[in-house]
Amino acid sequence: MLEFMNRMRRTTPLWVKIIVPLVGLPVTAALAFAVVFVITAWLGKPLPVFGFGEGPEQPIPFPHTAHAGTAVLVDTAGMARKDAQGNDLHGVGLDCAFCHRTVTQSASAGIPAREQCVTCHKVIGSADKDTLARLRELGLGGIEGAINWQRVHRLPDSVRFVHEPHIRYLTTHPAAIENSPDKTIGSATSVTPAQVCSTCHGDIATMTKVKQVEALKMGQCVNCHRDNGAPTDCITCHF
């Protein structure tokens, strides 16, 4: 082995020794990139490495833990946040449909207008927080400007998803619900709309930053449709 390497050193011209690493490095990087790309595509969502799977940065950080969750809130260091009296702070546990109001009525679940945020945040939340200050400014200072929320869950082109019938079906057929934090939900007798979201969105209430949990690929849609006797005609979704 050593001898072979010595012979290499002797016989390989200098320019090859320089060119090979120069070309090889980018090629290797490109290959690695392509592989990651393919795996990502196969999974239907970004790889959970280097923070890629963490979901996009939002213009105003919106912790679903604080809004939808009920667990104790933690700060960046992992310590429980306390109120003025020293009690642990819990999430307020809002129903999903409190903000995503049209989820039980129409195609899109709906993003609340910033006025709705301000309705609560006029009084809730400490004034020194930059984001809340900005929100108040936006919500109360006339109608200039909009919050450019980044979409987390996006279906491929030419797919039309209507929330309302899905919520309606799952609330009446809890056995079809997946990913619910409540393991007994399949046999529950009464289910609220907010309890079925997890089927596609995962347990949002535990996410500080929302990320995509399910691949949301067509196979998933079709499997569920077939299992539940829903139509599998192409134009059910593609138009």
């Binding site: 491929p156 082109d157 030419s158 797919v159 005609d233 192409c234 134009i235 593609h238």
Partner: peptide, 9 residues
Amino acid sequence: GMNVQVYNR
């Protein structure tokens, strides 16, 4: 009864 065009395909 509809003739359907699937854009994805």
